[in-house]
């Protein structure tokens, strides 16, 4: 049993967006801060740090979770994916991202990375959602700019396209 002491830095090695990375963290360092401050993943935004707004959502082992309610020391040897994994190196957006753009599903874009990550996880397990399913899932996020209209449209459209294999 290894006890990680509060006043030391501990090396955390894990898979981030498909690459093996490592960084140092004290036990109380939040995953959101670790990704942003130590690893430069500034696409992980922080909106409340108490688990309500969903802005910080990333995938841990493929599941959408709040990075602000996770400690860096918890992700050792696990897989963390952020919004940066969705587009390719040539700067091409994926279908969901493009649908967000098409339907004006973002304004300031601060909430967007977290929402995209939730939707990606959700659609993998719910390929044929109704609008009210989608709204229910989205209710784990706050967006102060858009009124959610464009998002719902973009998600419905992406789900339909993915389902029919387009």
């Amino acid at each position: 049993m290894r006890e990680l002491k509060s006043d030391r830095q501990h090396k955390i090695t894990f898979t981030l967006d498909g690459r093996q990375v490592s960084g140092d963290a004290e036990p109380h360092l939040l995953l959101s801060d670790f990704l942003r401050e130590k690893l430069g993943v500034t696409s992980v935004h922080v909106g409340c740090e108490h688990g309500v707004c969903g802005t910080c959502t990333v995938h841990i082992d493929g599941k959408a979770v709040r990075a602000c309610l996770t400690f860096a020391v918890q992700v050792g040897n696990r897989r963390v994916d952020t919004v940066e994994s969705l587009s390719n190196n040539e700067g091409e957006l994926n279908d969901l991202q493009s649908a967000f753009r098409k339907h004006h599903a973002l304004q300031c874009g601060f909430c967007t990375p977290g929402i995209l990550m939730s939707v990606e996880h959700y659609l993998r397990h719910n390929s044929d959602p109704t609008e009210s399913d989608v709204r229910d899932m989205l209710s784990g996020h706050l967006c102060r700019c858009t009124g959610y209209v464009g998002m719902v449209r973009a998600i419905m459209e992406t789900a339909a396209k993915r389902k029919s294999g387009i």
Binding site: T42, S43, T82, E84, F100, H104, L106, G109, F110, T112
Partner: peptide, 19 residues
């Protein structure tokens, strides 16, 4: 017209103050 701003925001590359 679709927005110029969006690609960087959607891809996580847009820099906000804290970034």
């Amino acid at each position: 017209i679709e927005r110029q701003e969006d690609a960087a925001l959607l891809g996580g590359q847009a820099l906000f103050s804290d970034d």
